[in-house]
Design a protein around this nucleic acid. Sequence first.
DNA 1: GGTGAAAATACTACCTG
DNA 2: CAGGTAGTATTTTCACC
Lengths: 162, 162
Amino acid sequence: MREKSGSGRIELDKTDLAILKILQLDNKTPQRRIAEAVHLSAPAVQRRIKRMEETGVIAGNAALIDPAKVGRAITLFVEVQMESERAEMFDDAKRLFSSVPEVQQCYYVTGDVDFILIVVVRTMAEYEVLTRRLFFENPNVKRFRTLVCMDRIKAGLTVPLG
Amino acid sequence: MREKSGSGRIELDKTDLAILKILQLDNKTPQRRIAEAVHLSAPAVQRRIKRMEETGVIAGNAALIDPAKVGRAITLFVEVQMESERAEMFDDAKRLFSSVPEVQQCYYVTGDVDFILIVVVRTMAEYEVLTRRLFFENPNVKRFRTLVCMDRIKAGLTVPLG
DNA sequence: GGTGAAAATACTACCTG
DNA sequence: CAGGTAGTATTTTCACC
């Protein structure tokens, strides 16, 4: 394998991208159907998929769940600003945010904001408990701003390819 | 089927949630293995999965792709504030943002910000072209703020269950 | 990368409580 | 109506070219 993890770029040809495009929409698509779409045999497709999984291009295979349907109706965006910029403090924050299941996505960003969190909860009461634990009781957090999601226009989990 | 789409909540028992938890991590897990995990037979699991797909609890099945590995190294968060709050203008904005492949996720939020966009591009030059088209040349956009993602701590596409 | 056979898996019909 | 069983069809996977 060329590169198991790491952030380096992997060489992908047009066929690989075409396969990814299909798998991104529906990874249950039979290799047979993918094969005829990209003018290849099923095993050839299979080998390419395997390689992309090994190199980390395909990071995982997941069923996409509608949060509202499982009673997790509330999505929140939280911009977090930290007190200092010490590396150690960031590691702590990363570990903390990662460990919370309600924190669906967490990004470290530039600018006056340090972290952006996408949080999914059942109720606002649940979120308030969370804010206490993550922000108010966290001395490293200077400030945080919450934006409440009213509508998910595009649920995006797909990466634009090509 | 109880409810094909719509945002109503679906009745799910402990077993359904256990199945979802597994499929969210890896939807290629054989029904046989899921079955023994939840103490059921494979066809029973199969029927439950089918029902959850029909009711929209499972919205889709996707391969998760690492943007960096396909040359889409740059993730940006854009907060967009609109000029007015007319419904028609929002519909236009939704359509516009949805139609752009680089806009991976788009949410309508409350507060002084109206939309949050998560944009994935290859280069900053590509983003600049996009900003012109989406924001500068769009009279409905009052203001926008871009936050550049430095690190994706948690790539979250999973919904906390239970 | 293709071919063909083998193994694993998903699906269906039918039966049972 | 939900689950189990057994058989069938599909799909994945492997050896070989």
